[in-house]
Design a protein around this nucleic acid. Structure first.
Lengths: 171, 171
DNA sequence: AATAAATCAGATATTTGTTCCAAATTGAAA
DNA sequence: TTTCAATTTGGAACAAATATCTGATTTATT
């Protein structure tokens, strides 16, 4: 069992620690922008029965406070030849701080890894790997992951089908 | 083992099946827009040593072909009181088409579920659940997931720390 | 009732996406 | 290699739409 919290503790990647009290209007704005970041302030205002000013200011505040982390174009992996998704579970041999940090650093450098979670249970980490096909996965597994020197054991679970995939956390 | 492929087969949610041959320039554009969807066509053109016309037309084509699925504001879950992420693994009792479809339909309706994958291995599905805290998770687990009548067994894995989380699939 | 905060409505100046056409590049054919 | 057709790109220009600001007005708070 390896808890990475300690390692990340110093890393304040949050823009600020400002904790906003988000009300219904803020959540309404977020809901719309999560669906379509290209919506204009005017349209948002219209849908929420507000004028542009409050919408404008609320968005600005939420951007500054880090509530809105980024605006991103979401790309369909299948359309760019990255159709295979693999969940790879990893347990480390050594669990001390130094080794954990090294592992994280190396994992972060692998572009195939789109997600890395420190988890409870049998394994220490789950990484999500996005590749073209099985050949490319083997290549990754053998030559990148396999080169790390702190792995105890791993397990690869293959994604057969994506039923749902969203970034929306506001309901 | 439950392969949902068949169920999803008829569901062509891809805008079109146009398969674009993306070149270096297209990938360059995608790379930038994945980082920041608010970048202007002019700025993109500048960074790639192009004029606005090709950038404009390439973006339009990629939008139409579904390469770019959407533009989204990415919200930090911790800033809106959804700090707990749980991976919940599920195996169904009945694996026939009808039951699978029903399960999927119900899962999709749960707003707490931000991701649902049909996977290989011991379990049929992995769902990612985003909630405020353990109380809210229990509430979900007991009253929503627990109400489904086709569950064989489940396992909850808790996310201790998010090391990496990106939507970038273009390098 | 008085003060502070939030919202409205309207106006502005900048910026943006979008178009046009000539020039350049590419790729195939000879 | 040379020629020719077909794409692709550069650069400039435009109209439309946008974010942003100001001050009056409303709403909430003390």
């Amino acid at each position: 069992m390896f808890q990475i919290e300690i390692l990340m503790a110093g890393k304040k990647e949050n823009n600020t620690d400002i904790q906003l009290n988000l009300d219904e209007k803020d959540l309404g704005i977020l809901k719309l922008l999560q669906e379509d970041a290209k919506m204009t302030i005017r349209d948002i205002a219209r849908q929420l029965n507000l004028s542009t000013t409050p919408v404008y200011e609320r968005i600005r505040k939420m951007e500054q406070a880090g509530v809105i982390k980024q605006y991103a174009a979401i790309v369909d992996p299948r359309k760019i030849n990255k159709s295979l998704t693999v969940l790879c579970y990893i347990t480390l041999k050594e669990h001390n701080k130094k080794c954990g940090r090294k592992f994280i650093q190396e994992i972060l450098s692998f572009t195939e890894v789109t997600e890395c979670l420190n988890i409870s249970g049998e394994f220490d980490f789950m990484i999500k790997v996005q590749v073209k096909d099985m050949d490319e996965y083997r290549e990754f597994y053998v030559n990148k992951l396999g080169e790390l020197d702190n792995l105890s054991h791993t397990q690869s679970i293959f994604v057969i089908s994506v039923i749902k995939a969203t970034h929306q956390v506001v309901f």
